[in-house]
Computed example of a mutant assay.
Amino acid sequence: MEPDDPTPADTPGNDTPVRGSDLARQALEQARERNAARRREAGRTPLVRRGGGPAARRRRRWSGPGPDSRDPQPLGATLRTWVDRAGVGADLTRAQIFGRWPQLVGPEVADHCAPVSLTDGELLVQAESTAWATQIRMLAPQLLVRINGELGANSVRRIRARGPAAPSWRFGTRHVPGRGPRDTYG
């Protein structure tokens, strides 16, 4: 063997233990491979190397062949993102429910009840009689499917029906506790 040729025992691929700078190179290469695999799984762009130092690990500035957040977006997707970030989605849903109530629930149901409020996904419906309030409670699952089918999933999570309110005998800001004039009802 010539003196310049490494002996088989000195090469890193043999049965001899790897040490020193060869061990460091192998660990670095394995770390780079794991990092590249994680970036591919996450759908992120690969790192581009330009020389040494901290600026060497910069991302590319062009979009590439696949879809990217920097690509032009459809107007509907942009508006949906804006509505979600601005927090006006509940107001838009409420306006659509109140404005399109007869189309959402049907004319017969709309003749006998009306939406009152939409708070945290709970729709409060005022019925004209206790019988219609009971009917709305029984129809609630079907109404939820119809409303969420028209306005989007989870626009309304629960429907609560309320019957007509009893007359109030309170007049003014002062009130005396007790049965009062209601004792004639029972």
Rank of each mutant, 00 (worst) to 15 (best):
141 P>E: 05
141 P>S: 00
94 R>N: 06
106 G>Q: 05
63 S>K: 10
54 P>V: 15
79 L>Q: 06
80 R>T: 10
1 M>T: 07
13 G>A: 12
161 A>C: 05
126 Q>G: 10
127 A>T: 09
30 Q>V: 02
28 L>R: 13
122 E>W: 03
4 D>M: 08
120 D>E: 15
51 G>V: 07
136 I>K: 00
179 R>C: 08
66 G>V: 11
73 Q>C: 06
106 G>H: 04
25 R>S: 09
168 S>K: 03
91 D>V: 08
84 D>Q: 15
44 R>Q: 12
155 S>G: 11
170 R>K: 14
162 R>A: 10
34 R>S: 13
137 R>D: 09
88 V>N: 03
186 G>N: 07
8 P>Q: 11
34 R>E: 12
31 A>Y: 06
171 F>P: 05
106 G>T: 07
48 V>S: 10
39 R>N: 03
181 P>Y: 10
119 T>E: 15
152 G>H: 01
180 G>S: 07
29 E>Q: 11
27 A>T: 11
41 E>Y: 03
31 A>P: 00
125 V>D: 00
115 P>A: 01
112 H>W: 10
36 A>G: 05
89 G>S: 10
139 L>T: 01
81 T>C: 07
38 R>K: 10
170 R>W: 05
122 E>S: 05
111 D>W: 07
5 D>W: 12
115 P>T: 05
164 P>L: 01
169 W>K: 02
140 A>R: 02
64 G>Q: 07
135 Q>N: 08
144 L>C: 01
172 G>I: 04
118 L>F: 01
21 S>C: 06
42 A>G: 07
110 A>L: 06
53 G>C: 04
44 R>H: 09
182 R>Q: 11
138 M>H: 15
112 H>F: 08
33 E>A: 15
150 E>I: 01
46 P>R: 13
20 G>T: 06
143 L>S: 01
104 L>G: 05
15 D>P: 03
121 G>D: 12
55 A>F: 13
53 G>Q: 07
174 R>D: 14
172 G>H: 07
75 L>M: 11
110 A>Q: 02
46 P>G: 11
185 Y>L: 15
167 P>Q: 11
